Simulated assay, not measured.
Amino acid sequence: MDKPCVVIAKPAYDVWKPSFDAANLPVRYALIESPEVAILDGKEVAPADVPANAVWLTIEALRGPLRRTFKHLLETAPDLQWVQSLGAGTDIPLLQDVLKRGARLTTAHVSSISIAEFVMRTVLERFHRSDERRMSRAAKEYPRDDFREIYRTTWLIYGMGAIGSCIAERARAFGAHVIGVRRNPTGNEPVDEMIAPSQVLDTLGRADVVVFSMPSTPETQNIANADFFARMKPGSVFVNIARAALTDEAALLASLDSGHLDYAVLDVHSVEEAWLYRKERMDDSPLWTHPKIMLSPHGAGHGDGRHVRITELFIDNLRRFLAGENPLPDEAWL
């Protein structure tokens, strides 16, 4: 029997070739060099002729000139068995199609550390009024104002998977009281309290910081609506590092403008989704310039350590796949 064929974008493979050499796994690597050329067994072949059994979806496979090539492979490879995703979510159509074809799909939580650090940094910046202090320095002024402490604040983290757990661990290290929200808790979540989604609205009034780290599902879309924000504690901070579809942005803007909410951190939002999925600019969106919104381009997970972690994860999962392990860690299902 031929060795399984594992498809990887050549730029990604070249960077981590020493790791693949050290792993010395019994596979054939098909390296996608361009939309027209793949390297298999030392020879140039058409990407459409690659007998793909497994695919590693690196960023090069999802964006840029190789995107359509990988999409075609995922849609047409007759013997595709397993795909390793780059992120934690499975709600994008490409990954849903992989599952519908009957191929196995594993997700990755390698950005959890990066996202948790992002959340702590952005909340600290607001609590400490860092923007005002920078302006004071530029004006050569030295105000002696108090700043808010995280110590003894209460955080409600909606979604206690890998990302939510990393955030909870760090918030508790600062002395915060953390309330976790999860449909099916394991009992091992690093929180002080655990509640069900049905209890969230009645608990919002206790939280100084509310963080969204849950998946986007029909049940959670626009869950942060006018009623949700009205029930939040006056002067609290809202953070969404999950999906834009969870938030009614008009309701959020109204709550910020009224002074009920103090601040919002949006790493996912309509501006980002318009550009990512439709290549449309939303230069007139009030999200760009609102003084109480920190806007970032879905980059909370872009810590430099994620590259090593995803490579180690892929090689480990590839080893498990070859050994016939079922299910694989963090395997997704329809």
Score class of each variant (00 low, 15 high):
V6M: 07
I8A: 05
P11Q: 07
K17M: 14
L25F: 06
V27R: 09
A30Y: 04
L31F: 11
L31V: 11
E33Q: 15
G42M: 06
E44Q: 14
E44C: 11
P47G: 15
L62H: 03
T69N: 11
E75R: 14
D79T: 15
W82C: 04
S85A: 14
I92C: 07
Q96C: 10
V98T: 07
V98A: 04
A103V: 11
L105P: 02
T106A: 14
V110F: 08
T122D: 07
S130C: 11
D131E: 14
A138V: 13
E141T: 15
P143V: 14
I150K: 02
T154C: 13
A176G: 09
T186P: 03
A196G: 15
S198M: 12
L204Q: 05
V209S: 03
V209F: 11
S213Q: 01
S216G: 10
N225G: 00
F228I: 05
A230G: 03
M232H: 12
V239G: 02
A250P: 00
A251E: 02
S255R: 01
D257Q: 04
W275P: 00
S285M: 02
T289H: 12
P291K: 08
D304E: 10
R309M: 12
I310E: 08
I315M: 07
D316F: 07
N317Q: 15
L322C: 07
E325V: 15
L328T: 14
P329I: 15
P329K: 15
A332H: 10
L334Y: 06
